[in-house]
Design a binder for these strands. Structure first.
Lengths: 120, 120
DNA sequence: ATACTATGGTTACAAGTGTAGCCCGAGCGA
DNA sequence: TCGCTCGGGCTACACTTGTAACCATAGTAT
């Protein structure tokens, strides 16, 4: 999903439904886009099936057509397979090697894993 | 970096230098692209500074202009910030929640962290 | 009623990406 | 020497993405 569309999705995942004007206003504040820009995006995204709407009282009420978790997962899998042969382990390894992981982040990861094992 | 260009980079990271014909042949096998397609990509990528070449004996010898690790890191940071607010921990958490991490993968991660702590 | 605003529809246009052809000169095998 | 392949340069063209204006209608505030 292109970046501009992702931004609109984030907005709707954060709160929905929203009308065109509401979304446009939010986008204007956040990115400076003209209203028409946002309208174009909404149109494209609706056509692609990313958004759906209900003909409510006066203005259409827009909703994301799928949950954020789903989109994040798809993007993540795509990313992992492209760069790391699908392996999260390889990614973490790389991050560590590049010294981009601080000790505290490593600790955080360990805590996550610990919590996980407890649950499973 | 667009996907098609990434594929060419992978090819050169795997082995360099390579001549246009060699790359084109590899791409043809791997993706079915016509030679001209690969040539176009090489041209664009050279213009963007992704590739450089040396006027060797007869054909230009192409090299990646930067190491894979560097590109992977840039893409990774970009990805993490876009989807996970820059946090690897958040990503791992999400993967676990979505049940996309098997027990063995969790074990693998733990092993990576253990190895890491030893070194640091 | 009147003017302004929000809605929705349409059109535009440049840059980037995917995919490929055409042309010409140089070298190599028959 | 003649054609074929290689290498390099240029052109093409559709689709996607980023960004936006224009237009008409319906509702709203005065």
């Amino acid at each position: 999903m292109p970046n501009s569309e992702w931004i609109v999705m984030e907005c709707l995942w954060d709160e929905s439904p929203m009308t065109v004007t509401q979304i446009a206003k939010a986008m204007e504040e956040q990115t400076g886009w003209a209203k028409s820009t946002t309208k174009t995006l909404i149109g494209r995204m609706t056509a692609k099936g990313y958004l759906r709407f209900e003909e409510g009282g006066k203005a259409r009420e827009y909703y994301p057509a799928f949950p954020r978790s789903e989109a994040v997962m798809a993007e993540t899998e795509n990313f992992l397979s492209r760069l790391y042969n699908g392996s999260l382990g390889m990614m973490v390894n790389t991050l560590i090697d590049q010294k981009n992981l601080s000790r505290s982040e490593i600790k955080e990861l360990r805590a996550i894993l610990d919590k996980m094992e407890g649950v499973k």
